[in-house]
Amino acid sequence: MEPEIIHIPELALMLGRSESAIRSARQAGAAWLPPSFMQGSRVCWRVSTVRQFLQECESGLHAPRRPGRKRQTPPTLTTG
């Protein structure tokens, strides 16, 4: 029977990342990490939430923003 709630080691296996990468990303607030909750002093994830998050990422809902400066509208040419 699969557990309903997982912790950092299990999430690391699901995402193919190291445990330290998960911990660092959580502290940095990385967008590629599914939403978590606290159970006492432990960080937890629901397996169903992680799977849904991965499906949303696959469809492009959690795509990271591209860095760069904002575009300015070009000036219009006036002939007179």
Score class of each variant (00 low, 15 high):
I22N: 03
E58R: 08
L77S: 06
A63H: 08
W45R: 10
L33H: 03
L15H: 12
R71M: 07
R71N: 11
W32N: 02
S36L: 00
F37L: 03
L15Y: 05
L11K: 01
P34R: 08
R23A: 09
C57I: 14
S24P: 03
G60C: 01
L77D: 02
C44L: 09
P3A: 13
S59A: 07
P74V: 04
V47H: 05
Q52Y: 00
T76G: 02
T76F: 08
A21M: 11
F53V: 05
R46V: 01
L11M: 08
S18N: 08
V47F: 09
S59N: 06
Q39P: 02
V43P: 00
I8N: 09
M1Q: 11
P34T: 07
R46Q: 13
H7M: 06
R17I: 03
P74N: 02
R46F: 05
F37N: 06
Q27W: 10
G29E: 10
Q52P: 04
S41Q: 09
T49G: 02
S20R: 14
L54H: 00
S41I: 07
W32Q: 06
C44T: 11
Q52W: 04
S24E: 06
L11I: 11
Q39I: 04
R46A: 10
L33C: 01
T73H: 04
S24C: 04
G68S: 09
T76L: 09
R71S: 05
F37V: 00
S18H: 13
S24M: 08
T79W: 03
P75V: 15
P74C: 03
T78S: 00
M38V: 07
A28Y: 12
R26I: 13
F53E: 14
C44S: 12
